[in-house]
Amino acid sequence: MSTASPSPAAPYRIPSSLALAARQFPRHRLALVGFVCLLAICLAAALAPWVAPYDPVQIKLGSKLKPPSWEHWLGTDHFGRDVFSRLIWGGRTSLSVGALVVAFAFTIGVPLGLASGYFGGRVDNLLMRLVDAFLTFPPLLLAVALVGLLGPDIQNVMLAIGLVQAPILARVVRGSTLAVREDVYVTAARALGARPTRIVLSHILRNVMSPIVVQLTVVFAAAVIAEASLSFLGFGTQPPQPSWGRDMSEARRFLADAPWMFMAPTGIIMLCVLSINFLGDGLRDALDPRAWRTRRRLADGEG
């Protein structure tokens, strides 16, 4: 396969590395699958009022704990509510918690980790002691304390989970930054007179993207689960509002009688996490030229 290279007569355009990365992404088949799945799940959640066949909170005791059928694709729960509809509506809570926590962790954790790792010294000491302090608490306990302090509101739940996840990400980013900081190309950039912001953004960040992407998929999964635990403890979404995590933990009581109740939310969470993982792999590869599938001949003659 040969990539289009401009003919010698053509004026020289340099495609930006991001544009080249964007060209690469669709070549990653699993990433594309992940992307499509995730898009479908998000769309369903967004369009829940039109997509969901039933009202997710309407109680129909007459048809409780029904197994999957044509009428109820994924069966019903112990209040006779349609599991499939709850899944679609629950996606609104769970996905937004996941997405916002990821965004929060990224905006707090990445700059913190980069600054800590790059500048080192006192900045690093201060930031990392802070992170250590955060990490000494069991994460769920910390979240519970925060929600208790701020009030059991869904926004506060997100904030609490985000505050727990951000330091973990910061630590990962710091570790990678420390390694990359010593690379020769960073020294070369310093020798060129690049400012620290340029060095960090255009050299270090690019080269620590892989661990960041991996960690963010972990953060997403952790956020969905944490929301479930908090809801279960009565801090997150309040019943009867649907949420994947909440429904999952409630279903445990009916595991023997109505396994579909448990399998549906578990399955969707797994599907989401898998999709995000594939997406993450694709992003990571798209951002790393060494992983591209275009194989150009190495070196056609020195000069």
């Binding site: 340099i14 495609p15 590395s17 080249l20 060129l192 690049a194 080269n207 030229p289």
Partner: peptide, 24 residues
């Protein structure tokens, strides 16, 4: 440097590597 490959950011194409020096 001795290790020329290591002195070039692996994520940037040649045009950007040289262009960056101009930009700075």
């Amino acid at each position: 440097f001795q290790d020329a490959h290591a002195s070039l950011n692996p994520r940037l194409p040649v045009g950007d590597l040289v262009g960056e020096a101009l930009d700075i």
